[in-house]
Design a protein around this nucleic acid. Structure first.
Lengths: 226, 226
DNA sequence: CTTTAATTCAAACATCTGTTTCAATCGTAC
DNA sequence: GTACGATTGAAACAGATGTTTGAATTAAAG
């Protein structure tokens, strides 16, 4: 086993288990067991559990953030060429589409998006610190662009509504865990009961990634411009 | 010390610490230390840590859910009297206003809303199970009412958009932790950098609970009707 | 083949976890 | 005041946690 083999096995196992159970509820022994390596390997290759989390996040977040920034720059550049302001919808698309669509780019990415959704809501400390370290550069540019797109919206309202939008996206990612569809558990129960009461009720159709992205973009765009 | 005194002290301490650090990251010894009682008191009065969480949630969620259902029923009843469908905005107000406004109703409630925001995002298992047990009755009625308000919106889109709305609310509650304002940490850093770059940038004004509720209701209403 | 460094492994480390035990204490009814 | 059930307290429980150790193994270089 060379170095990179063991490291990758640990990263993959940690990514999966963190996304399933969260950072604090996943033990190093579970991770190393699933990876098929010794417990000491984590501290040997990464230094600590927290450093492992950093590496798990960075491996995926670095290319994702690059992609998001590219799309954001493209939107702003195209708007500038036309001498117009960027549209809220295009900005929100650059924010949401790469993030949600990321899960289709790689087998392990599906686990990762759930991990990201969970990271932002995990108790303050380790996870949030690691996460925001990677997110901050993008958010800075995003808010600047939104100010250009909505010059008449007061700063505090713009920040507040963007805050709402982040909440929407995070919730999508979090629920994205298993099937990749918005089948969060409260609704599963509801739907059954609803079905009993209403006649002629049709089971809702499955929702593709493309529809999910479109609907999410429409939802937050309408909210931003409300 | 009589029974209820000790029980209340434990519930208050657990509510605060759970909301700060989450369920899994809070130990019984931290709770009992803050409450000024013996470690054994938790198991004596509640049976287990999980049962303690149930009691923490139930103490606040029972009256809150009652209030939300009352408001929802009032909205639907008034609409029926006028022979009209309930408005999405009124429904969303019944969903959001009591939840956010709850933090002003009691000194400890401020901690509780953050706990609720965190509960829904905590790794599946204990916390989610306890939480949805209390939430389900309300959600069922809510979705039925939304179907009445938006009869032309396909079921899968309605569920999806309500899913988005829940994400927005949860994110608000989660960030609601300290000051009670949407001052999430990523934006604190952004704002500083943004301030440097833009001339004539004005620091955003503080946002009151009433504004927060109004903006949140407008945001999700616009999204639902998009 | 020998040497040398990198890596793996089983075992132990100290610490923390939720829970239990059982004697000491408290409040109350007789 | 005495007896009795409810409550508290200090201590210990068994198990899990992240981390460290030092010898064994592997891979590459001379």
């Amino acid at each position: 086993m060379n170095r990179v083999g063991t490291q990758k096995k640990i990263l993959d196992a940690a990514e999966l288990l963190f996304s399933e159970s969260g950072y604090y509820s996943t033990s190093l022994r579970e991770i190393t067991a699933k990876a098929g390596v010794n417990v000491a390997a984590v501290n040997y290759h990464f230094g600590s559990k927290e450093a492992l989390l950093d590496n798990v996040l960075e491996r995926r977040l670095a290319p994702l953030n690059k992609l998001r920034l590219q799309m954001l720059d493209a939107v702003c550049a195209e708007a500038k060429d036309r001498g117009r302001r960027p549209s809220v919808k295009a900005l929100m698309h650059a924010f949401i589409a790469p993030t949600i669509g990321f899960r289709d780019s790689d087998a392990g990415s599906k686990n990762f998006v759930a991990l990201v959704g969970r990271a932002i809501s995990e108790p303050s400390g380790t996870v949030q610190r690691s996460f925001f370290k990677f997110m901050e550069p993008f958010i800075t540019v995003m808010i600047d662009s939104l100010h250009e797109a909505l010059p008449d919206l007061p700063a505090e309202l713009l920040l507040l509504r963007f805050h709402f939008s982040v909440g929407t996206l995070v919730h999508i990612l979090r629920a994205n865990n298993g099937a990749g569809l918005p089948e969060q558990r409260c609704m599963a129960g509801d739907r059954a009961k609803h079905k009993e009461r209403k006649k002629g009720y049709e089971e809702p159709k499955a929702i593709t990634t493309a529809t999910l992205v479109d609907e999410a973009v429409n939802f937050v765009t309408a909210g931003m411009e409300a």
